[in-house]
């Protein structure tokens, strides 16, 4: 295989590693500072909750980036995409361990037991554990009270949804991290026509970017109409903007 034939071309262009400096905090300024503070607290844990698209994944990855920058090990583990066999992969982890999407495995006793042991092992070796979930801790139905109590031990941070002005900033920052400028009329088009939650907006943005790269075209409103047919409910092309 040649060096320059990617094996799994899932991303046409990688994003920069997430950093705290790129996080658009909106109402979550203090919360983000509390998350960042975990880096300086050996043997501590943190629980971050907040609805979809409030930046939980960004903050966890930023923690990893910062920890790696200090020359220490950091693990980002998205529980949503893990199958059961991956439980065995939690043994022997050291440094910072971030679990994203806890809600995806909460209630599954085997997973909870694996997380519990990992939690103990990491903290005993002066590492740190950060956990993110859409639901606050109190709303999660744990099968293992020991895990619930470990999760409740550290600082809890609750993220609030971003107001529209901040969502626009996030959209621009993401475009920048993908190395392209988002024209104002396209911004407005996206904000008006795509579902208002940030996840949908970012998804549309990345799709638009891929469309532009694939067709070697500039990012314009007509391109957005073409590429985002599904997001616009099939009427995007027909309806005048």
């Amino acid at each position: 295989m040649s060096l320059f034939s990617p094996q799994i071309p899932l991303q046409l262009h990688p994003r920069r590693p997430d950093r705290f400096e790129d996080y658009i905090p909106g109402p979550n300024l203090a919360a983000a500072a509390a998350v960042r503070d975990l880096c300086s607290q050996p043997g501590a844990s943190l629980f971050v909750s907040g609805p979809a698209s409030t930046g939980k994944t960004h903050l966890l990855n930023a923690l990893c980036t910062e920890t790696r920058g200090d020359g220490r090990m950091a693990w980002y583990i998205g529980l949503k995409r893990m199958d059961k066999s991956a439980r065995a992969g939690l043994k022997g982890l050291k440094g910072l361990v971030c679990f994203d999407d806890l809600h995806a495995v909460a209630g599954d006793r085997d997973w909870e037991e694996a997380l519990f042991h990992c939690f103990n092992e990491v903290l005993a070796s002066e590492g740190q554990v950060a956990v993110a979930s859409q639901q606050p801790l109190s709303a999660i139905d744990f099968a293992l009270p020991d895990l619930a109590s470990r999760m409740a031990w550290g600082v809890r941070v609750q993220l609030e949804p971003l107001p529209e002005a901040d969502r626009l900033l996030v959209l621009r920052a993401r475009a920048k991290s993908l190395d392209f400028e988002l024209p104002e009329e396209v911004e407005q088009f996206l904000l008006r026509r795509i579902s208002r939650d940030l996840g949908s907006l970012l998804g549309a943005l990345e799709k638009l970017h891929r469309g532009a790269l694939a067709g070697k075209r500039r990012v314009t409103v007509p391109l957005a109409r073409e590429v985002l047919v599904a997001e616009l409910g099939g009427e995007g092309a027909a309806q005048a903007d």
Partner: peptide, 20 residues
């Protein structure tokens, strides 16, 4: 650097980057 370009970021960050 190569793998980061080739793999989905989650795949890369979860499995590959932490290796020593």
């Amino acid at each position: 650097k190569f793998l980061e370009k080739e793999l989905a970021s989650e795949e890369f960050n979860t499995w590959v980057r932490p290796l020593q």
